[in-house]
């Protein structure tokens, strides 16, 4: 049953088997599985405390699972830090956005992967290539049709919530080569800004990047997701097709009010 709700023959791009993560007596992940296929938007839903965040942290390198195996393509990966996951092409847009408010848009987009000047200045004096970073940041933001940038050097804290989300998504889309993970990208936004971010998610998908979308917002999930991974009690309960199931049925599964149909059961 590893090819759940997916045409046979296509291999998952990112998958996890039997992930376990314990915090003291609390088991956040209890042999959780996960599959993401190329080019799809996979929504991950689950009640509070179901272990969604722990799952996402494990595949994005933010925590190291106690047990289990994560595969990216054909390779088994063991991310020790978000940096390693990023180097492998997995970019994450965190719920709190992980932006440094006092730093500029360009500084934030390149935080942790700065470009240095060529030649002696960069090699020996470790000098940053500000103009190259600003140019690339502006190009990425424009490419996503995101915004008309007035000043790429302005501090992120001077931006609105939607603008910040835009910067974080642009950063992920710019550097993510395999997978983009988005944790509650619309949670802090108004209706109009949410709509823009949903469009942005579709744009990123069109560029060929598969997306993992964690969200509590059922209408948003049902609007954009190709498949929905329902997480419950620390593990994958089932994966459902949003075209075949209603929102209330999905919520019922998520909360344990109903049991999943046998054909959607995960392993």
């Amino acid at each position: 049953m590893s090819q759940i709700l997916h045409e046979t023959g296509v291999k998952p791009l990112l998958s996890a088997r039997g992930l376990v993560k314990r915090y003291g007596r609390v088991t956040a992940l209890d042999h959780a599985d996960f599959d993401l296929y190329p080019g799809e938007i996979l929504a991950v839903i689950g009640d509070n405390g179901a272990g969604k965040s722990s799952l996402i942290k494990a595949i994005s390198g933010a925590t190291i699972p106690d047990e289990g195996e994560i595969r990216l393509g054909d390779q088994v990966v063991n991310f020790k830090s978000p940096m390693e996951a990023r180097d492998a092409g997995i970019e994450t847009v965190y719920q709190n956005l992980a932006l440094s408010p006092a730093l500029s848009i360009a500084d934030n987009m390149f935080l942790g992967r700065e470009i240095r000047k060529p030649g002696v200045l960069g090699q020996w004096f470790r000098m940053l290539d500000r103009s190259a970073m600003e140019r690339q940041a502006r190009a990425k933001l424009t490419e996503l049709g995101l915004m008309t940038i007035q000043n790429i050097g302005q501090a992120v804290e001077t931006l609105s919530g939607g603008q910040r989300q835009g910067v974080a998504v642009a950063r992920a889309a710019a550097f993510g080569s395999r997978v983009v993970i988005m944790d509650e990208p619309t949670a802090a936004l108004g209706v109009k800004e949410s709509r823009r971010v949903l469009e942005l998610i579709q744009d990123v998908k069109k560029r060929g990047l598969p997306i993992v979308l964690i969200s509590h917002n059922m209408p948003h999930v049902f609007e954009v997701a190709d498949r929905i991974h329902i997480h419950r009690l620390g593990r994958r309960l089932c994966v459902v097709d949003p075209k075949q199931i209603s929102m209330s049925d999905a919520v019922a599964l998520m909360t344990g009010a109903t049991q999943p149909p046998t054909d959607a059961l995960a392993a």
Binding site: R86, A98, S100, P101, A102, L103, L111, G112, R113, E114
Partner: peptide
């Protein structure tokens, strides 16, 4: 830049790959 980022928001800095 990383030094500023740490003072600004250590959690964000860590998630951005700052050690």
């Amino acid at each position: 830049r990383h030094l500023h980022a740490i003072g600004d928001d250590p959690e964000a800095a860590k998630l951005s790959g700052v050690r």
